[in-house]
Amino acid sequence: MSDKDHSSADDRTLVQSAQKGDMGAFEELVARHRDKIYARAFSMMRNEEEAIDLSQEAWVKGWQRLHQFQGESSFGTWMTRIVINLCLDQLRKQKRQRTESIEAMDEESGGVERQMPVITINPTAGLERNELRQRIDKALSQLSYEHRTVMVLHEFEEMEYKEIAKTMGCSIGTVMSRLFYARRKMAALLQDLRKQNT
């Protein structure tokens, strides 16, 4: 398949060619989905260099496991699952090495989000897209890795609670509590950022 054929072919055709060893077809798949895979890694890792490394590792694994892809999901979804698992492994490794902050322990013990006052004004109303993205970026960085991961898996990967529980190795109840905490914390952080800028 020529380069021109690659660029006009759909994902399914490219995958089939890549499964037969066509590296050019795989390169086209990488080009098409690289932003999405990198974005997922960055959302989880919050570090550009780590996200680049892990996304590349995901692509290498994707090539090695291409024969396992049967088309039950889209190729992009299949690849994001690979990068998510790599990020989770890396985060677990880092957690074992890192001493837990007091804030993180407070998050884990739970409770504070249940008493937080409800934020009635939409803190993101009237914001331009770039400004909103910056604020969300800043707020996401302030969540612990467990809460951020649950949020990423639910909001971006659109996983159900039980799927998240299986991926993270925790109970559905824990997923629900962490997601609830993460959402309430995000709302409060976005509200604070709005107040700082007005």
């Binding site: 990198y38 974005a39 960055f42 959302s43 996304s55 897209r129 969300i136 996401l140």
Partner: peptide, 8 residues
């Protein structure tokens, strides 16, 4: 829409 704006 957060991730939509992220570019490698």
């Amino acid at each position: 829409p957060f991730e939509a704006g992220i570019r490698l």
